Simulated assay, not measured.
Amino acid sequence: MTPSSAAKGVEAALRLIEGRWKLVILFHLFGGHVLRFSDLERAIPGISQKMLIQQLRQMEADGMVRRIVHHQVPPKVEYCLTDWGQSLCPALDSLLKWTARKPAGAS
């Protein structure tokens, strides 16, 4: 891999998780959690219903989130991570550990 191709790859990866809410949604779903839409809405204060729907749809289209529709009355929709979405957990965990090692006094 060249520096240029590596930079393009990282840029593409960051595009998948960019946005204010995607990482928050991911962290709520990591570990095999299956959550109803309303559970996610309650778990993420400050997110509008419209934004949550938009972020979940983008993540579903990108293959990170799976939408499970239970055909019942009232309708029940749940979300979970795909295997590929779950595989992002160690990378984000490493990023958190890296951030925690930030030198004192660095801005």
Rank of each mutant, 00 (worst) to 15 (best):
E41G: 00
D62G: 01
Q58F: 10
S94I: 07
L26E: 05
M1H: 09
K102I: 01
F37M: 07
A7P: 00
V34C: 15
L96M: 06
S87D: 15
A104R: 06
S4A: 09
H28F: 07
P45K: 04
V73R: 15
V24W: 04
L29E: 07
D62S: 09
V10S: 06
Q86N: 10
V73K: 15
E41W: 00
G85P: 01
W84A: 15
V10W: 03
S48K: 05
W84K: 11
M1V: 12
F37G: 04
E11T: 14
P103D: 10
F30K: 01
W98M: 12
M1S: 14
D83P: 05
V77N: 11
A100N: 00
C80A: 15
K102A: 06
G63F: 10
S107Y: 04
K76I: 13
L29G: 05
E18D: 15
L81R: 01
I25W: 03
I68G: 06
I44W: 00
A7F: 12
P74N: 13
G9A: 14
Q49Y: 06
E78W: 05
L14E: 06
G19Q: 05
S87K: 03
V69H: 09
P74S: 14
L40H: 04
R57A: 13
Q86M: 13
L35G: 02
S48C: 09
Q58K: 12
L40D: 02
A104C: 05
Q49F: 04
V69P: 00
D83Q: 14
L92Q: 08
A104Q: 09
L96R: 01
I44K: 01
L40Q: 03
D62H: 03
D83W: 07
E60N: 07
R20C: 08
V77W: 09
G63A: 13
K102Y: 04
H28V: 02
A106W: 02
Q58N: 13
R42L: 09
Q49M: 07
R67C: 15
H70N: 11
G31Q: 11
